[in-house]
Design a protein around this nucleic acid. Sequence first.
DNA 1: CAGGCCGTGGGTAACGTTTTCCAAAGCTGG
DNA 2: CCAGCTTTGGAAAACGTTACCCACGGCCTG
Lengths: 345, 345
Amino acid sequence: MEPPAPPRRVTIVDVARHAQVSTTAVSKVLRNAYGASPEMRARVRRAIDELGYRPYAAARGLRGQTYTIGVMLPDIRNPFFPEILDGITSRLQGTDYQVFLGPGCNGEKEEARVTEAMIDRGMDGIVLVAPVSSPTRLEHVASVVPTVVIGRHGCSPVYDTVTDDDVAGAALIVSHLAGLGHRRIAHIEHHETDPTRIAEMPNAQRADGYRRAMRSLGLADEIDVVSTSYTQQGGYRGAKELLGRPHRPTAVFAGADIVAMGVLEAVAEAGLSVPGEISVAGYDNTTFAAFGPISLTSVDQAGHEIGANAARLLLERIADRHKPSVQVRLSPTLVPRRTTSAAPE
Amino acid sequence: MEPPAPPRRVTIVDVARHAQVSTTAVSKVLRNAYGASPEMRARVRRAIDELGYRPYAAARGLRGQTYTIGVMLPDIRNPFFPEILDGITSRLQGTDYQVFLGPGCNGEKEEARVTEAMIDRGMDGIVLVAPVSSPTRLEHVASVVPTVVIGRHGCSPVYDTVTDDDVAGAALIVSHLAGLGHRRIAHIEHHETDPTRIAEMPNAQRADGYRRAMRSLGLADEIDVVSTSYTQQGGYRGAKELLGRPHRPTAVFAGADIVAMGVLEAVAEAGLSVPGEISVAGYDNTTFAAFGPISLTSVDQAGHEIGANAARLLLERIADRHKPSVQVRLSPTLVPRRTTSAAPE
DNA sequence: CAGGCCGTGGGTAACGTTTTCCAAAGCTGG
DNA sequence: CCAGCTTTGGAAAACGTTACCCACGGCCTG
């Protein structure tokens, strides 16, 4: 009842009329394009301010850019992803680009739906965080719109990648534990069967890094991997299995903090003390891990750096779609906390 | 180097030509509009499939809708918000609408930026979760685009609201604690000075609910509120202050789970046992609270329901912008866990 | 059998912006 | 003083879709 008449939006035509110039001139000012004198720029800008004009992105998209960047996160609940997002937005600060997030995508179908939706909306570039789709699919997306992939170890000429060195990260944990005197160090991994995923996904790399580190430390015989999933549930089930072993491990390296949460739950249920009787380590350095009473030893991936690099690469690729693709690999760091200590006995 | 030629997108004209009909006809089929025979529908649909056509949202937006809904969350890190998001998307399942999230907005300025960006992109509707902007600002947004506000107790003729009954929620906690024999029940609130916010924001309602419940239980003399902020830091500081009291409380009701986390940290530092020497309760029933080793007593807001209701109201408002506004208020439920027990002595 | 209505289909003008031209005017150097 | 360049500004045609309106035929009704 209050405002039954939705007021018409101010358009570029209104601005042009108000400033007594052509719409072309206004457009040039908006885009900082060549061919406008300083006086005209000032004049147009004043008109824009006076009228409160804002360019309509849908219309811009029809001819040029939409100044929109899409980010796809696999799971908002994982506290590691906001870090990446912060890195992206901080790098985009001051540009005309606006970030929008595609909501929870688990599974290839959902991913396809969201990426298609982003393409349909004419987004200027997209960032895919830990996508599960096939490389073919990723290349298809990247061939249509500038794309940066985070957290996948495959590489392609059509998209850039930013990854954490998961093999090195796993090694950090294993040598930390070995340095504390542990020998029976078990690992809980995310089950993977697809061969390309085994090569590209971070979880597989972590498991691989675990195995390699164990071997290089002369602990090849102690290698013990349980294959569940990167969820709290998965950690719980994995830990149950490990605790049931005749010769149970003295340390568990969970492939992700969320998995470690499940491990801690199972360990508490079994009445074992952490780290006195069993040490537990995670991966990702989430807020969960940092939380005082939990204080989980973990690996920090520098999410902020990852995001900032991804945004930088994306801007570069938007500027030149045919530049050679870049792979950025960042080194993780160990964050020792109170869930790991010297091995018992 | 691989695909230097970005392939032209399939347009409605291509489909029309391929199906040997007019573009108008294709458009009608796309929108399930009146004036197309079943045969034509089938024919057009086949052409769409064969060509892999997808409508270009930017172009649609210029004339009609963009089939895009924007959701603004104040903080992705808060585990309560994904619940709401799930509720929204589940209700939108099967419709043509796609949800996009505006990224982290703390503060009025950021909120304004994101809402403007959504409006500029021609979004068909937007959902604001716990916005901090002034009512005037909210009404302005709502006057331009269909809007639903979640978690604000103010009401307006131009937008619908979905809220949790925070007063009742606070009462649930207080009577739970009183029922366990506690009398010195303290509360940690989010500091608020702005008068309209005091009336509308959930945190203020919770503090108010706490006071009322205390009074109605004959504990008016025991009312003890510390004003910090809804952060882990805030909880920590608030707890420090409470623990320093000559007559320290036997129970602390933190206004949010994240605040309770800080409380637990401070309590652990002080060497007090929970719930033996002091009971702690939160609000929101986040995954944090549900996590076994923490097991925090909390209040569940039925985030999924909240989101689903918001989406429903938004669809209704998109269908009829002038329908009278609706306020939905949901009742919270208590989730007792292991951080609360009988009062000492 | 005339007049009107309904079901079906298409022509065409928007929508708000960018982009590609082109024209005019102001320089420069010979 | 003229030929060519540079700078400044605008006219007009896209971009892909939808909304509005009109035309055509068939059928019902009186």
